[in-house]
């Protein structure tokens, strides 16, 4: 994915989708280790030791609080998955949008690690979050095509 170049301010990281689509019933502790593993693999390929690991952990950590916040009144159904087909577009925008934004804010500020670049990093966070969300949204049509047609 790092070979897709859309200007230096739009840097989508669609691997977050993997964390977004983890089923509801995966235990909290297991999901932390899944995020750790995913982060380490991404770090290996991006030459950024620890950066993606840390960000993926933040993403999965925030996921639980956001899931609680956006849950329906009677809890989640046993059969549904956290994707756009089962939960609807509006739910997905709040759910994925906020996790992606948290992940990207944390990631890009940690990457730059300088306050002199505050506004250029902010621009990067906003544009990249939007592009990641769009990519994540479209990727779901690929993965779930057979299941729902």
């Amino acid at each position: 994915m790092q070979h897709i170049y859309l200007g230096s301010y739009i840097v989508p990281y669609p691997y977050v989708l993997f964390l977004l689509l983890l089923p509801f019933e995966v235990p909290k502790i297991a999901s932390l280790f899944i995020a750790l593993l995913l982060g380490v693999v991404i770090d290996l390929f991006c030459n950024s030791s620890g950066l993606h690991t840390s960000s993926a952990l933040v993403a999965i950590f925030s996921r639980y609080y956001i899931l609680k916040y956006v849950s329906p009144r009677d809890g989640y159904d046993a059969a549904v998955q956290p994707n756009v087909y089962d939960m609807g577009l509006q739910w997905f925008i709040t759910y994925a949008g906020s996790i992606i934004f948290i992940h990207h804010t944390y990631f890009f500020y940690l990457e730059a690690f300088r306050f002199t670049e505050f506004f250029s990093v902010l621009l990067r966070v906003i544009l990249s979050s939007v592009s990641t969300f769009l990519v994540c949204y479209l990727l779901q049509f690929l993965f779930y095509k057979n299941q729902y047609k």
């Binding site: 502790i29 932390l32 030791s49 620890g50 840390s54 952990l57």
Partner: peptide, 29 residues
């Protein structure tokens, strides 16, 4: 959950800080 999250986060930061150390640069790049 929170304790484990913080523990793993410490590991991640350790990797980040050690990026120039011999082990860090040798394994994770």
């Amino acid at each position: 959950f929170i304790v484990l999250f913080l523990l793993l986060q410490v590991i991640a930061f350790w990797l980040m800080v050690n990026r120039n150390g011999y082990q860090g640069s040798h394994v994770l790049n």
